[in-house]
Design a protein around this nucleic acid. Structure first.
Lengths: 186, 186
DNA sequence: GACTTTATATAGACCAGTCGTTATAATAAT
DNA sequence: ATTATTATAACGACTGGTCTATATAAAGTC
């Protein structure tokens, strides 16, 4: 409904992605989103924690959706997962290594310092896991096997994003794509 | 030689691990390390960036050393890597999920906002990769294969740490250990 | 050996600026 | 007229960084 609210969340997402929770200031959010401070506290009366938690959850939902869509395009799980990761690799590259998972930094910064944000990150990761999990089930994997693989896939992707952004090359992500493809094909 | 300098770096490491770069303040570092601000700027005249870069590099060197030591205890690469990861899992668990890789958060926060810290993170990750790489070479892998596997191993571990800290269970890390063991055994 | 000079290191007050947050006033929409 | 939203100003707390004062120790000079 409200444009300003959505704009704030979207801007927050981008900033969290680039510089994490503590590195992102409310002043920066309002400047970049164009919304004034009054509006920010009108829509998010509980302040920074609330904005962050909602941004994280929204981003998790959107990413999970993208995973599901990408996976429907191919009936082959190995190729589907690999393609999805190659997509991320391009995205990270195109952003000049400023983007790639708004969750990672936030999750690490707040794992033991904000129960609310931690819960949001946990739920967001569960959404990603579920998206992969469901596709694997669909491809005939057992429930426990699908669960294990989904966690492993998310782990490898997260790590790949970190290494890619740090090294300023998408190669680590592409390598993760390749390795997971082999693993899932076997 | 100097005790205070070392103490500052060690404290910084622990705080970076727990709450990242922007979440860690100089006042917190001096309070926790016992050194006054005068000493901090005496040993690190270039301020927070310098302290962080040095802490990251030191931590990378120490972790790489631990990897090499752990790997010499077993001639079997698969078991050696798995055991190392299980060690991390215990460490993360014991810390109440506050510890586990001082690099991750810092690397993501500063990938495009501080060339100095980014360079330090990059070098630290290279050290970890090299440690695994050398062991894989020793076990008969080809140079390119060893390089690919080393990157993949580091990726999976980093991701496992994130998921473990976020979910407050060491299970993801243990799962990563198991999967990599299978992968390396084949 | 006594005395001065130079480095090493500790200690903390202080600065301008920013943080997240609150309060209040003005405006727009219904 | 009532509510929804925007617009600022101000708050106290804290930020990274600078500055000066002091203590300790090493080295140089006679």
């Amino acid at each position: 409904m409200s444009n300003a609210r959505e704009q704030i969340l979207q801007t927050t997402c981008a900033l969290l992605e680039k510089q994490g929770y503590h590195g992102t200031g409310l002043n920066e959010i309002i400047k970049e989103s164009g919304s004034p401070k009054g509006s920010l506290y009108y829509y998010f009366p509980e302040g920074k924690e609330q904005i962050t938690a909602e941004a994280v959850l929204q981003s998790g939902g959107q990413t999970a959706e993208r995973i599901r869509q990408g996976l429907t395009e191919s009936s082959n799980a190995a190729k589907a997962v690999s393609d999805f990761i190659l997509n991320i690799a391009e995205h990270v590259e195109r952003s000049g290594f400023a983007a790639g998972s708004p969750l990672t930094a936030v999750a690490m910064e707040t794992a033991t310092t904000s129960t609310r944000i931690n819960a949001a990150c946990h739920e967001a990761y569960q959404m990603l896991k579920s998206a992969f999990h469901d596709k694997l089930i669909e491809c005939g994997y057992s429930k426990t096997k699908a669960d294990e693989l989904a966690t492993f896939i998310v782990s490898a992707i997260e790590g790949g994003i970190i290494l890619s952004r740090t090294s300023h090359t998408a190669d680590p992500l592409r390598l993760v794509a390749k390795q997971l493809k082999v693993l899932l094909a076997s």
